[in-house]
Structures are given as C-alpha cells and as structure tokens.
Design a protein around this nucleic acid. Structure first.
Lengths: 148, 148
DNA sequence: CAGCGTATGTCAGAATGCTGACATGAGTCA
DNA sequence: TGACTCATGTCAGCATTCTGACATACGCTG
C-alpha cells in the first residue's frame, strides 16, 4: 500500500509532479552530500561562490533564494570549517566579499561531482533532446509565474 | 541587480531550474490561497481527501509527503474549522477515516479553482504537446530517483 | 492462548527558516 | 553640510517541520 499507489488525477497534475520531482531531487542530494558533511544550502552556497567569487552575504542569499539571516548562518558554519573566507572589515559599505579557500575549492569539487552524479541519474531515462526540452519547459514555467 | 542576473551555468542545470520552478509555484500557490485562509499543506490535504475520501491520518501524510505529526496538525486545524470530520473512535484499529464536510467540499471547490488558475498561468506559454512532454519528463525523473 | 511484528496516533524536543526590527555605511540632493 | 533613501549585517522572536520515543490496536504464528 505504501508504494503501489493508485494512479489518480493527482499524478496528471503538472504542479503535483513538479513538487514531487523537486522533493525527490532534494532527498537524493541530501543523501549524496551527507558523506561530505554538507547540507544542501551549504553546497548551494559553495556552488555559487565557485562560479561567482566575491559575492556578499545578501547577494548570496538572493542567488540561493533564502533570507540574509539564513545565509548568514550557512556562511558562519562554512567559515568556521575553513571553507570560505571573509575579510574582517568591509572594503566598501558593509558588504564583505566572500571567497572560497583552497579547502573550500577542494570540497566544492567533491560535492559538485556527487551532485552532478545525482542529476545524471535523474535524467538518465531522458534523451538529450528530451532533457533540453524539459529544461526549456521549466524555464518557461518560472518566467510565466515570475511576472505577476 | 536584483532582477537582471547574469545567465550563468546555474541556469543550465536542470536541478537548479527544477528547484526554482517548484519554489515559484509554491509562492504563487501561497499567494492565491491566502484569501481563502488556506495554507498549501491544508489545500493539499483537502485535494487528496476530495479524490480519496476516508483516508486516515497516516495515509494522508504519505500522500502529501509530510510526516504523520505534521499532517495531524493540519487535520486538527481543518477539523476545528469544520472542513473535515473524523469519528471520535476508530472503527478498526487506531486509524480514523477522514471525510470532507459539506463546508469542506465547498472550500475545496474554491481552492481547487484558484490553484488550477495558477497552474494554467504557469503552463500558459507551453503548447498542449509541450505540457504533456513536460509532465512525462518530470514523471521519468521522479521514477529514476525513486528507485535507489 | 501468548508472543511477535507492524501500523497507527500522539507527545516532547530540536532544527531550520522566516518575519520584524534596528544600527551602520554609502550615495543623492537641496 | 545636513537630511533623505537605500542596502547591508545582525539580533530577537515566531512558525513550521522533522526526529525520536512511547502506548495502543490488529494480524499472524507458534
């Protein structure tokens, strides 16, 4: 009863399946990142910093879609573990640019590998064209909802 | 700076966009359900109950992907507002089957309408065929991740 | 009948994220 | 220069959800 659910109208709703897919991806990522002692927000932070070094706390928060307060906690945890570095005083205004340390870059490399493996597993049944179409469809949905 | 973000590699990651889409859908649903004084979990519960009456708390929790404890709180809130009804004593075992009251059915009708409107808005830029393909792609992803 | 395993409902505690609020620093304009 | 606006970092409180645990109820098996 726990697995063999009746295929009801819910499974035909894009919204329901979208939520389900995001949920499954999150769970898979959590499980994959646990051996590296990283949470999903922590990994997201490392990934953004690797691609765009020097971002401030508030900018990182916007990029990962969390509040400044939450991102601040994440950054503190990463800083205590020596994975990111921030100057003690802000060079301009109050924003302190954050950078990955060498250890942070190494950890990001490992984390990025396992996350990409999860993503690859998720997309494995789809052809390249179908993957592209899925991506474009999702982007279209985001834009349609974003412009309210 | 807040809106015009650089189109980086992140936007080409299906996982990232999937999270983004689910997030946008959730926010839009919250905003649409607020006038009806319903949260997303509460609506989800009503929706499942409308399609499958008589489910117990634990079965509802599994259907909505939350814990029994969380669903119990949701059900209490809905019960206090007279939208769902549960017998005081279980007819079999400990599971008490839950049903929508007439008021609950009416509220569900209203909520379902606004949620479907949100979903329609989200899917508006996609053709029928693209919507179908998106749905099938997401289902494939869920299944690929589910079988670990 | 007694024991075991499973499922359910429920209670308590912890973790996580958010909203509200405030002080600080920089830019703008009269 | 002084007032205003905006963004940032940070503190406190609240809300929501999860994990852990326990008692109860049923079915199965010896």
């Amino acid at each position: 009863m726990s697995q063999g659910e009746v295929l009801g109208p819910l499974d035909e709703s894009v919204g329901y399946v979208l939520k389900r897919a995001a949920n499954a991806l999150r769970s898979a990522m959590e499980a994959a990142l646990r051996p590296l002692d990283l949470t999903v927000p922590q990994y997201s932070c490392l990934e953004v910093l690797a691609q765009r070094p020097g971002l401030s706390n508030a900018e990182l928060a916007r990029a990962v879609f969390v509040t400044r307060q939450s991102m601040n906690l994440v950054l503190r945890g990463l800083q205590e573990r020596g994975l990111v570095a921030r100057p003690d005083s802000a060079p301009h205004g109050r924003a302190r640019p954050t950078e990955l340390t060498p250890a942070g870059r190494e950890r990001h490399r490992e984390a990025s590998a396992v996350v990409r493996a999860v993503e690859r597993r998720m997309l494995e049944p789809l052809s390249d064209g179908e993957q592209e179409q899925l991506l474009r469809g999702l982007v279209a949905c985001v834009e349609a909802l974003g412009t309210e």
